[in-house]
Computed example of a mutant assay.
Amino acid sequence: MLTIHRARVVRRTPEGEPLPGHALVVDGDRIAAIGPYEELLGEYGGRARVREWDGELTPGRHEPGARTLLESVYHPDDPYEVDELGSAPLTGEAVAALEMTDTRWGQSARRALQKLLATGTTGLTGPFTRPRVRTVVSRTGLRVLAPGGPAAPPPLTPGGRADFAVFAGPDTPGGEPGTPGAPGGEPARCLATVVAGRLVHRRA
């Protein structure tokens, strides 16, 4: 199904030229077109749904520390483990003291990935060696890059995979300061995350 994503501003790269009044058309898992909203609505409007976002649409974040985050850090299950373990991620000796099975690593990775998707993450640096973690990552559809690969997400281009996020800018009502799509930095508040054309996070 075709979807037109309309935003206050579209940027083809996180630091690229802001394009006010633009939109992006998604067809399946691909970007079909990028351009002024009115033009795209005229071409695709009769057969596409429209999603409107009050923020900046850019390539999503890339998480270079994903392997450590998913395979060496344990993310407690809220609310079931918080009383015993607390809500903060566990590392080092605290993880070693737990009975960690491959299944439990997979469950922890799933919780961590949900948090990453909520920050606009669309790519990770691998590889992942734990079988259940690999499975969980694969099911999200997130792009996985090898170590030493590009540290930034690819630009948004027609024909490219539809991986992007929408971030609240400083002038967006309720917006917070930050850098949309900033790798390793403090991102702006994420309103939506799309991975391979699927809306995988939407801020309530």
Score class of each variant (00 low, 15 high):
1 M>K: 11
1 M>P: 13
4 I>L: 14
5 H>M: 08
6 R>V: 10
7 A>F: 05
9 V>S: 05
14 P>T: 07
16 G>H: 07
18 P>M: 05
19 L>H: 11
20 P>V: 03
21 G>Y: 11
21 G>V: 07
22 H>I: 03
22 H>D: 06
23 A>N: 08
23 A>S: 12
24 L>I: 06
24 L>M: 15
24 L>D: 06
26 V>A: 14
27 D>I: 00
31 I>E: 03
31 I>T: 07
33 A>D: 13
35 G>K: 12
38 E>H: 15
39 E>S: 14
40 L>D: 02
40 L>W: 03
44 Y>T: 03
44 Y>C: 01
48 A>T: 06
49 R>T: 15
50 V>R: 02
50 V>D: 00
51 R>S: 14
52 E>W: 09
55 G>L: 05
57 L>E: 04
58 T>K: 01
58 T>A: 13
64 P>V: 13
65 G>H: 15
65 G>W: 13
65 G>K: 15
67 R>Y: 09
68 T>Q: 12
71 E>T: 06
71 E>C: 07
72 S>W: 08
75 H>I: 08
78 D>T: 10
80 Y>I: 06
81 E>Y: 09
81 E>A: 04
82 V>S: 06
82 V>D: 09
84 E>V: 12
84 E>S: 13
85 L>K: 03
86 G>N: 06
86 G>W: 02
87 S>C: 04
87 S>N: 07
88 A>S: 13
89 P>N: 07
89 P>M: 05
94 A>R: 09
96 A>T: 03
97 A>V: 01
98 L>W: 03
99 E>A: 12
101 T>R: 05
101 T>N: 08
102 D>S: 15
102 D>I: 06
103 T>K: 12
106 G>I: 02
106 G>S: 05
108 S>N: 04
109 A>L: 05
109 A>R: 05
109 A>H: 06
110 R>I: 00
110 R>S: 14
113 L>H: 00
116 L>T: 00
117 L>E: 05
118 A>V: 01
120 G>F: 10
121 T>E: 00
122 T>Q: 11
124 L>N: 01
125 T>V: 15
130 R>K: 13
135 T>D: 13
137 V>S: 11
138 S>H: 15
138 S>A: 15
140 T>N: 08
141 G>Y: 05
142 L>Y: 09
143 R>V: 13
147 P>H: 09
149 G>S: 09
152 A>I: 15
152 A>T: 15
152 A>L: 14
154 P>S: 00
156 L>R: 11
158 P>F: 05
161 R>E: 11
163 D>V: 06
163 D>Y: 02
163 D>T: 09
164 F>W: 07
167 F>R: 10
168 A>I: 01
168 A>Q: 06
172 T>I: 04
173 P>W: 10
174 G>A: 02
175 G>L: 11
175 G>V: 05
181 G>D: 01
182 A>T: 14
183 P>H: 06
183 P>R: 04
183 P>E: 10
184 G>H: 04
185 G>H: 10
187 P>H: 12
189 R>E: 11
190 C>F: 01
193 T>L: 08
193 T>I: 06
194 V>G: 10
195 V>I: 14
195 V>P: 11
195 V>K: 12
196 A>N: 07
197 G>E: 07
197 G>H: 09
198 R>H: 08
198 R>L: 10
198 R>C: 09
202 R>K: 10
